[in-house]
């Protein structure tokens, strides 16, 4: 506020007409960009509640003229979408929790400048960011570990992301050293300092890194496709993908199921499943938004 006031007082820096026009252009362009990110979601959301008739007749709308839950009923009844949803929720919780335990405990000792072995371990970690065994050797090794067709094949290989670990480590390094000294004076050991002092102060970084890991598990498609073979273990992304790939086949096979609206809700079902897979992310998003921005910023500042 004060700043703007000061600028206004200096008469010679008043905005010219040209400047105002540029301002308007910037606001409009930004508005259009924001709109272009949201419109596809709005269309699919609206389409999932629309009748198949409206979907085939109109190319684009964001409010259906006639609301229908037909697509959701169909998705829940036949497309196994609820099983995928349940699997993905469990996998995301289990995976994120494991990743956080491993990443936090690993980052904490490495954040201590006195920790012996710190330098060569950090080099070891950074090397894995530059070079990796790659898809096939990893696949064969994890197969030898007996991880095929198990959720652990999706969780264990990514327990610690070097990038996320370094963000956590930097955060720990930012905590005041005096806390450690005071706790040592009180007779606390390193484990007590970690759990009772460092962790309670680290809620922002825990929130943002949990989000990164959680989104990774929720969105993972490729690993699940490579490692899982039994359908009852499939996460929602696999279910969704197979629904999207089915063209009108579901319609041909199950005509009896939904004759009530005249046309098979093929397009609407795809949209409904897309909405079901997207909504959990959008529900969590507003709560963690302020944290992930911080997380990315910490990661961007070198140290």
């Amino acid at each position: 506020m004060a700043k703007e006031h000061k600028v206004k007082e200096g008469a010679k820096v008043r905005k010219s007409t040209g400047d105002r026009i540029v301002d308007v252009i910037i606001y409009v362009v930004l508005g259009l960009i924001a709109l272009s990110t949201v419109l596809p979601f709005l269309y699919v959301f609206a389409g999932s509640f629309a009748t198949e008739k409206e979907l085939t007749e109109k190319a684009f709308f964001i409010i259906p003229s006639e609301w229908s839950l037909n697509a959701y009923q169909y998705a829940v009844k036949t497309a196994n979408i609820l099983r995928g949803l349940r699997n993905s929720i469990l996998l995301t919780i289990l995976g994120t929790f494991s990743c956080m335990v491993f990443s936090l405990t690993f980052a904490y000792p490495l954040s201590k400048s006195h920790f012996r072995g710190r330098n060569w371990m950090m080099n070891m970690v950074i090397f894995t960011m530059l070079f990796s065994g790659g898809m096939i050797p990893s696949y064969l090794v994890f197969q030898a570990y007996g991880l095929l067709d198990s959720w652990w094949a999706l969780i264990l290989p990514g327990l610690i992301s070097p990038f996320n670990m370094i963000i956590i480590k930097k955060f720990f390094q930012g905590l005041p050293l005096e806390l450690d000294e005071a706790s040592y004076m009180d007779g606390a050991n390193d484990l007590q300092i970690f759990t009772k002092v460092a962790l309670p102060l680290s809620k922002p970084v825990i929130a943002s890194i949990s989000l990164f890991y959680g989104v990774g598990f929720w969105n993972d498609y490729f690993n699940a496709m490579i490692y899982l073979s039994s359908a009852e273990k499939f996460p929602i992304q696999i279910q969704l993908r197979s629904i999207i790939l089915q063209t009108s086949k579901i319609a041909e096979n199950q005509v009896l199921d939904y004759d009530m609206f005249g046309a098979p809700p093929d397009k609407a079902v795809k949209m409904a499943c897309t909405v079901i897979a997207t909504v959990p992310i959008l529900i969590v998003y507003p709560f963690v938004q302020k944290y992930f921005t911080k997380g990315v910023m910490v990661g961007a500042v070198k140290g």
């Binding site: 405990t105 904490y108 201590k112 327990l159 390193d190």
Partner: peptide, 30 residues
Amino acid sequence: QHKWLYLLFLPGFIYFIMFRYIPMGGLVIA
């Protein structure tokens, strides 16, 4: 003196060996 730090460090260390470095060793099949 800092045994707890090393115990905290251990799971991650084992992870890096088992899931990052052993797969690199798997590159011998190339």
